[in-house]
């Protein structure tokens, strides 16, 4: 089994490496010159432009630039942000933490709520099931940026109970429990935005999976034993039904990173998504590359973790791995 994971980690590293190269090439294909973006419309002497190009290594051929980039990455040097005049890594790490503060709870709570909803729908059936399906369809199809603005309009502007944007209030305590409460208040609306879609995804996946498991033969065995429906759902249906939901987990993590672009823009959340949008506008290529690389690593790690979770939940997978690699 450990051999399986070593193998899995090895291929993850290969994946990350390939994506680094693809990202590098893609960004070089983007029209627009970073030096021009940096200088702006101000007429600069050609000498100055050439010197900037040399300083940033932009005068080298593409493969040399790639080689330099890889060499720098190996030393933990993600480059230097033209626009922010700050090392990329410092810039991204802080922002990534802010994004994860939003995304991780969103995914975990969405999974729990989504599975619970579909379990309740499966056990009640009828009208409740239809209501849940309707609500999830709504959450599935509603655009996140529109939902965000409507939520701000209702809760921040009309009712005035929650802040419109940002992560902290200036007048709130800087540390301790007060600061935590302040953060929570700022988190509510962006979290709701991300979760509206995520709950829908998880509950739809879980619902399909639960309905499948309900038709399994071992559920009839449970009935034949005289077990109650509630117990059967909880002990027999749920543990089997979550297995396919775990597969969605890793994928949904990547999707949440993407949706953070929109959500963080709407709510001015100082996360990596907002930084990405700004960096695109500024043609701040090292920052873009850095964010893409970091997201790649996060998504790959999330998928490896999902695989690990698989083997914990499903003894059949554990056994087949043990047999093959023992």
């Amino acid at each position: 089994m450990w051999q399986y994971f070593l193998k899995r980690v090895f291929w993850s590293i290969v994946t990350i490496f390939v994506i680094i190269i693809v990202n590098f090439v893609l960004i070089k294909l983007v029209p627009g010159d970073p030096v021009h973006a940096m200088i702006g419309d101000f007429p600069a002497p050609q000498d100055y432009i050439d010197q900037l190009r040399r300083d940033f290594g932009l005068d080298q051929p593409l493969h040399v630039q790639l080689w330099l980039y890889l060499g720098n990455l190996a030393q933990g040097n993600f480059g230097f942000s033209f626009a922010n005049r700050q090392p990329v890594l410092d810039l991204i790490l802080g922002r990534t933490v802010n994004t994860l503060i939003l995304i991780l709870p969103a995914i975990v709570f969405s999974a729990i709520i989504g599975i619970a909803l579909s379990l309740a729908a499966a056990s009640r059936g009828g009208g409740f099931d239809i209501t849940v399906s309707a609500i999830t369809l709504f959450g599935y199809s509603i655009p996140v940026f529109w939902l965000g603005q409507v939520l701000v309009l209702i809760f921040a502007i009309v009712l005035g109970v929650l802040p419109t944007s940002g992560m902290y209030s200036l007048r709130a305590p800087q540390s301790g429990f007060g600061a935590f409460l302040d953060l929570l208040r700022h988190m509510v609306l962006p979290l709701a935005c991300i979760m509206a879609f995520k709950i829908a995804v998880f509950s739809r996946t879980a619902r399909a999976s639960i309905l499948g498991v309900l038709n399994s033969d071992f559920v009839m065995t449970a009935r034949a034993k005289g077990l109650s429906r509630g117990y059967t759902l909880w002990r027999h249906v749920l543990p089997n039904a979550v297995i396919p939901v775990i597969a969605v987990f890793g994928y949904q993590f990547g999707h949440a990173l993407t949706s953070s672009l929109l959500v963080e823009t709407v709510f001015a959340w100082p996360g990596v998504g907002q930084l990405f949008v700004t960096a695109v506008g500024q043609r701040d290529f090292p920052v873009l590359q850095g964010i893409l690389l970091l997201s790649t690593i996060l998504v790959v790690v999330a998928n490896v973790l999902a695989d690990l979770l698989y083997t914990i939940v499903d003894p059949r997978i554990r056994r087949s791995l043990g047999a093959r690699h023992a």
Binding site: D217, F218, M220, T221, A222, P239, I243, P315, R316
Partner: peptide
Amino acid sequence: MVFQDPLSFLNPVM
């Protein structure tokens, strides 16, 4: 009652 296919009639993860 006992059933025909004992594998599918047992819960695989318990």
